[in-house]
Design a protein around this nucleic acid. Sequence first.
DNA 1: GCCAACGTTGGC
DNA 2: GCCAACGTTGGC
Length: 134
Amino acid sequence: MRYWLVKSDPDEYSFHDLVRDKKTNWTGVRNYQAKNNLSAMAKGDVVLVYHSQTEKAIVGSSKVSKTAFPDPTEDGEGWVCVELTAGKSFKNVITLEHIKSTPALSEIALIKQSRLSVMPLTDEQYECILELGG
DNA sequence: GCCAACGTTGGC
DNA sequence: GCCAACGTTGGC
């Protein structure tokens, strides 16, 4: 079991939308590193959802319910998506500001590679986030 | 709205 | 294959 974090612009598709839909195909990733991470996801892996732009906080968790398959929205070829099933909303969202001020999360890819949209989390990072999220 | 970071493209 | 130009993302 591995842990991941995906970014979403809540104006386009928010965690709230995922909860409403129960599950969704996480499509539209057009970056090789992000694609490799999507491909490495296993069924049952936990995927935390971060809202960029206006909110800038980790808001909830989801699970991989289908491993990588060809992105049906693809405009080129070779891109993949996974199916995510909504999990829990965090009681307290974990803001970027909070993440930045938490030493245990100083190495998180969210900060180190600000433009990456799908990234792995270490066990320690995941547990730390869970704790902060309540 | 600006701009830094950084990925991608294209000319050479 | 290098690197400058360009486009996009995302924080501020």
